[in-house]
Design a protein around this nucleic acid. Structure first.
Lengths: 237, 237
DNA sequence: GACAGTATGTGCGATACCACACATACTGTC
DNA sequence: GACAGTATGTGTGGTATCGCACATACTGTC
């Protein structure tokens, strides 16, 4: 049961689309199209952030990596949001790794332009802060879900969050990559994905995962998914 | 080896202390002393937030509670920070439960006053945003630590974070309460605490935990503690 | 169409944590 | 100083996940 995705319209990022005309037209000349490929690293922890990104068709993962190489995703950003929060929050450098989880396009803007517009304090500032608040909910819920819920449910949550940020029912993503996101073993993902496939919720093969029954996934997922989704809608809907 | 705590001075909250005189004097008449007792609930998820709090000697825990009653802490705020971020980030209601983890004092300010001052966009705004950024690091690291590190290390991290926010080497806190914070069973905390006590790092008895060897704890803790601490110092130090 | 590379499937023993049950010990109250 | 309430200690068996090893299967390349 593929979900029908509403068209996003000429402005393909929801935050930009929500701006008043005046502010959008002031920003628009500074927006630059860019295409991002799977696995591309946008920010390294501690590194400079030259641009802020408004994803349109791509998805970016926010990852923490431990000293021993283990990693876990703390949040993701797609066409509903932005990448590069620290630029207006006051950290000059990236607090974590950001990599492209799903290839696609984004609009980018120079850090300086962003910061000047942010200081003006209009609707743009309000939207950025509201988005940040929603992202904090996502991060928090990820923390709790990591602690309290089994892999299968986390996998459902991750698939649904990704699906919400895509125009398609197919994700290009191996079990290995998902394992890095969830901070678990690849085998654990294989077993979980197998169960979801046997239940008819998804099908997959060599790095392509297709969502077959979105309602089924929503029935199988833990509450964490809905909490995050509701909060995004409340703050930005 | 008790650590020597530097006196915090007449302005007992670091964020307030960092304000330029002019801004502080504008805010000062609106700051109201309040005493908070252990276990007191400051915010309920979804509830109104009438005030923002600047802890001086208390510690507040940010907790997420699941439908089944399981809970986990996502962050804590003491004299280095504030409670009530959503008030200036744009959510009108509290995103999670906030309870007093360590009894003590705080200064509180009416939500409206805070919001008016925030919009002025001075140093106050900058500090609040920087603090929020640091808190996001704390939440993220908690997420990762929950996923990847054993209880003993999480316990060390939690004790150190708490100790940093106290003027004393003694925490009033039962194993049961710590378990709620860490999202684990009470017995798990008992066993972990036992090991730390046997190692001479802490001692405890019926709800009083004393830090005996802070350096030892720092040697036993996972990297997560230092990451959070460094980020707070970088952004607010 | 052989082959290398990659993705997925599966089993096994070890470990960390769980739920539950219950024992023990301290502490304040009357 | 008996007692109730609470905090801590410990064991047992079950489950989820881990680390490792290896089998299998698909896919693009020459």
């Amino acid at each position: 049961m593929p979900s029908s995705k509403e068209p996003v319209g000429p402005i393909e990022n929801r935050l930009l689309a929500a701006l008043p005309d005046e502010e959008y037209h002031r920003l628009q000349p500074h927006l630059e199209h860019t295409t991002l490929s799977l696995g591309q690293v946008i920010y390294e922890p501690g590194g400079q952030m030259s641009h802020i990104y408004f994803p349109t068709t791509c998805i970016i993962s926010l990852l923490y990596t431990m000293e021993n190489g283990a990693s876990a995703e703390i949040g993701m950003a797609g066409h509903e949001g932005i990448l590069g929060i620290a630029l207006f929050m006051g950290g000059d450098t990236a607090p974590n790794r950001a990599i492209v989880q799903s290839a696609g396009n984004a609009l980018k803007m120079k850090a300086l332009v962003l910061q000047e517009e942010f200081i003006r304090g209009g609707q743009f500032q309000k939207l950025l802060l509201r988005y940040t608040q929603a992202l904090m909910t996502q991060i928090s819920q990820t923390a709790v879900c990591n602690r309290l819920h089994p892999i299968d449910q986390q996998l459902c949550r991750w698939l649904l969050l990704s699906h919400d940020r895509l125009r398609s029912d197919t994700l290009i993503m191996t079990h290995n990559l998902i394992a890095n996101m969830l901070g678990v073993r690849r085998e654990g993902v294989t077993v979980g994905a197998r169960r979801l496939q046997d239940a008819g919720l998804i099908s997959y093969s060599r790095g392509r995962i297709t969502i077959l029954d979105r309602q089924g996934l929503e029935a199988a997922v833990c509450e964490c998914y809905q909490v995050v989704k509701s909060e995004f809608e409340r703050l930005l809907g």
